[in-house]
Design a protein around this nucleic acid. Structure first.
Length: 560
RNA sequence: UGGGGUGUCGCCAAGCGGUAAGGCACAAGACUUUGACUCUUGCAUUCGUAGGUUCAAAUCCUGCCACCCCAGCCA
């Protein structure tokens, strides 16, 4: 086995790993693991865990295995087991092997027996409430359980009978004998095995006793050969216990736990229970609702894996609580999409534009690049005609300062076609602009030698070639304050008022009728944003999700 | 009032005793058949705070302050 070489440091975790390599604590390669509990759908916060675990292992030439922390059947199900694998694959990461904490139950059990024999664990008859009461408080020490000093023989017998299912759930548990007066509550004789009769999605009813996380996790890490066990900040004060288990396990591989901060995004709901609440209450259509920041929600929204990975790397990692500005995610989403999106014209809020100096049946063929951002691109034909649709926001009766688009007397380019000069407009019964009139200049066809310059370019659709589509816009879904008052971190992630208008459906949108759209492509609707086809689309009607809007530097309100 | 963490630009984040990287955001300008993209420029005399050590401190020491996590037979 080749000795790993230290690698250039890019974050504090790699700095720690380098140190371990230099000090010879890590021989061979670095091994990590992704240890999800299959009790929910993964969200953007998990992307960092995935990138970190798989990325770090890869960087050091090691492996990262997927291990389900499936030691609590009460919360877990096969649905989540499957979803996790799908989501990891979608992100483009590959695990070395798939393991389950339940795979190690026999080994865990043997080590528990060993601890009992060494007098380091005992069976406690106290009820859960009593255990809690005996534990003391944050500021006062706990006191020993009256069962703490049972003989090894009695403990062995009782533990065996727990395993055989002779006791009721909650009647007894196995505890590590550490120190009931320890200032760190996790060290006050933690429960390492409890009786559990629920049917397990994977191992059925085989086991009546289940190891707790604090016992199984360090053991499983060591058994698998994990060198660095990366986890969330909430386990920081479990580290002494993690090390206690490792050192008393008798296992030769000693894994090291390193904690890092969770990733939160301002205004985004990430807590499992909050996401479930939104789904259960029907506030969203499911775990893949595009308003959710679950991995599949993001996917349905049209976000590509690369954006997420770039975002996570750019956000960096530390141990400080961080709440990232969503604008940063948007940037990386646009950045990826900009390179690969097909440019199409779609009018999302139409008003009519009539070209005065064109006959009703007259059409002029023009050509537009599908991927103008690329050197080589396919092109397609559009037909410029008399009756067009343009975006309502591209015309103003009284233009605000620095407005470059249409108003009476102003000239603007119709994308890919001609420069037109606005001559007038009509209002409808309710006083809104219905139709705008303009003259086109035949000498100004795009791509010709036309030297005339104009400040604004707008998109359009020929009414004779238009097909109606639906466009869905999403905003961050936030919970009302009273609902997220529970956890500080949830509050940090979603501390705004509930936003009932998080979904806007635009029914009256127009696209060119013979543009072919498909599910795998991404589209930039000129000057409005990036979109993708939603699964709700039918043969009769295409439904688009807005992945992210285009950045718009026009801010009339800031003009003095 | 116990223990464990964290505090560097609006938001992330490097830095680890030698005189404040980078990204997002923002601002100005160039370019432009997308006010997008791209490009150029600007953006912390200061590192929670008060002292101390030193020729020299964000980096070392001390005291404060603020925020986060922990009292499941959850993970």
């Amino acid at each position: 086995m080749e000795k790993s070489k230290p690698i250039e440091v890019t974050n504090f975790i790699e700095a720690e790993i380098n140190k371990d390599i230099l000090e010879g604590k890590v021989k061979g390669f670095v091994q990590t693991r992704q240890p999800p509990e299959p009790s929910g759908y993964m969200h953007i916060g998990h992307v960092r865990n995935i990138v970190l675990n798989y990325g770090t292992a890869k960087k050091y030439g090691g492996v990262c295995n997927l291990r389900y922390d499936d030691t609590n059947p009460e919360k877990e199900s096969q649905e989540f087991v499957d979803a996790i694998q799908e989501d990891v694959k979608w992100l483009g990461y590959n695990w070395g092997n798939i393991y389950y904490a339940t795979d190690y139950f026999e080994q865990n059990y043997q080590i528990a027996v060993k601890l009992i024999k060494e007098g380091k664990a005992y069976v406690d008859d106290l009820s859960a409430e009593e255990v809690s009461a005996y534990r003391g408080t944050l500021t006062t020490p706990g006191k020993n359980s009256p069962y703490r000093d049972r003989s090894v023989e009695e403990n062995l017998d009782l533990f065996e009978r727990m395993k055989n299912g002779e006791f009721k759930q909650g009647e007894r548990c196995l505890r590590a004998k550490i120190d009931m007066a320890h200032p760190n509550i996790n060290m006050r004789d933690p429960v390492i095995y409890r009786i559990q009769y629920l049917h397990h999605q994977r191992i059925g009813d085989k086991w009546k006793i289940y190891p707790s996380y604090d016992f199984s996790h360090p053991l499983d890490d060591c058994i698998e050969g994990v060198t660095h066990s990366l986890c969330g900040p909430e386990f920081e004060d479990h580290r002494p216990l993690y090390n206690w288990v490792v050192e008393n396990s008798g296992l030769t591989n000693h894994s090291r736990q390193i904690e890092y901060a969770n990733l939160y995004i301002k205004g985004v709901i990430l807590g499992k229970r909050f996401i479930k609440k939104l789904v259960n209450e029907g506030k969203v259509s499911g775990f893949d609702d595009p308003r959710l920041y679950t991995i599949r929600g993001l996917r349905r929204r049209g976000i590509l894996p690369q954006s997420l990975i770039d975002f996570v790397y750019a956000a960096g990692i530390s141990k400080a609580v961080s709440v990232i500005d969503p604008a940063m995610l948007d940037y990386f989403v646009r950045n990826t999409l900009n390179d690969c999106s097909k440019r199409v014209m779609v009018v999302t809020d139409p008003i009519k534009l009539v070209i005065n100096n064109l006959a009703d049946d007259e059409e002029i063929e023009i050509s537009l690049a599908d991927y103008p951002q690329k050197e080589e691109t396919s092109k397609r034909k559009y037909y410029f005609g008399k009756n067009l649709y343009i975006e309502r926001s591209d015309f103003e009766i009284t233009p605000p300062p620095k407005y470059r688009r249409l108003f009476v007397g102003n000239e603007v380019r119709l994308n890919g076609a001609f420069i037109v000069k606005c001559t007038g407009y009509d209002l409808d019964d309710s006083g809104n602009v219905a139709t705008v009139y303009a003259d086109y200049d035949p000498e100004t066809k795009s791509g010709s030698n036309c030297t005339k310059k104009v400040k604004g370019t707008i998109h359009w659709i020929n009414q004779n070639h238009a097909k109606q589509v639906e466009v869905r816009l999403f905003e961050n879904l936030t919970l009302p304050k009273e609902d997220n008052a529970a956890g500080g971190k949830e509050q940090t992630a979603a501390d705004d008022e509930f936003n009932p208008n998080s979904l806007t459906i635009l029914n009256n949108c127009y696209a060119e009728d013979d543009v072919e759209f498909n599910y795998t492509d991404r589209y930039q609707f000129l000057r409005t944003g990036y979109f993708c086809l939603d699964k709700d689309s039918t043969a009769d009607k295409l439904v688009f999700n807005r992945t992210v809007s285009l950045k718009d530097s026009y801010k009339p309100n800031t003009i003095n």
